[in-house]
Amino acid sequence: MTSSSLARDVAPKLEKVRRSKRGVDTRPLVWPSIGVLLVWMIVPLALTLWFSVLNYNLTDPTSTGFAGFGNYLYLLRDPALATALLNTFLLVGGVLLTTVLLGTLFAVLFDQEFYGQGAARLFVIAPFFVMPTVAALVWKNLLMDPVNGLFAYFARSIGLDPVVWFSDLPLTSVGIIVAWQWVPFATLILLTAMQSLDREQIEAARMDGAKALARFRHVVLPHLARPVTIVVMIETIFLLGIFAEILVTTSGGPGDATTNLPYLVYKTALLQFDIGGGSAGGVIAIVVANVVAFFLVRTVARNLDS
């Protein structure tokens, strides 16, 4: 490339940059935010990677030196990792399925005209604002307790044996609590999306003789496709990190039955003080999140194009 063609390429760009700034230097305005986020992205990540290849235990001063892939090999051979991965996927998948199905149903329901619609809608979205530790403890004790809980009372009053939720169905129980918090989120987003649906389209479909189910399938569902994708993406980011609900209800048990990836890392690093092993677990969590994020972003991008 000759210098003149380079100048021809660069000159308009420079001009554009100059014009866009219009005499104002925006760098001091933008850089503080970028700077802190850059540090936040790079420093802990680099440290996690570094620790994950060290022998490093806070309680064992003799455990030092380079471990290579030792921590990873140890983790990969440990059945606890496979269990934690499986639990993570079951929890994310189960909650996603429940929240999207119920959220769509409720969004359609609360989009109908009825008395006190606005107030009823406030009650439906309320659980989303309940902090995770409160949600988990209220469900675990007041509702799901096998002796004094409300569900046990209902079960006994119709002649059934009460379910011992956290021993018999531990992962499902945690899933129910988490779903209770996220159904309102899906409902809120999808309801907002429903309200931007063109009423005339539905009316036209009705005129053409389309039954309610057909209207839902051919008019409402296509309209909701994009918001549903967004709900799935945002919920996945948060659901991959479920932690407090597990800590206060089951502490990952019984056995490893409710240990997901975040809880496994917490247990390894902060309860067993194995910094190297915990970091290796952290790296695996990052890889999983990025693989999921990659596919989600691709799906969303495709959805945005169409």
Partner: peptide
Amino acid sequence: YPTRKTKDLLMWMLSTKMMPAVGVLVP
């Protein structure tokens, strides 16, 4: 004062939310 990089910058900021907290808990 949007520049050509503004959209990328916003997407990059969004991507920092994809980093799971547990991945950086230890450090």
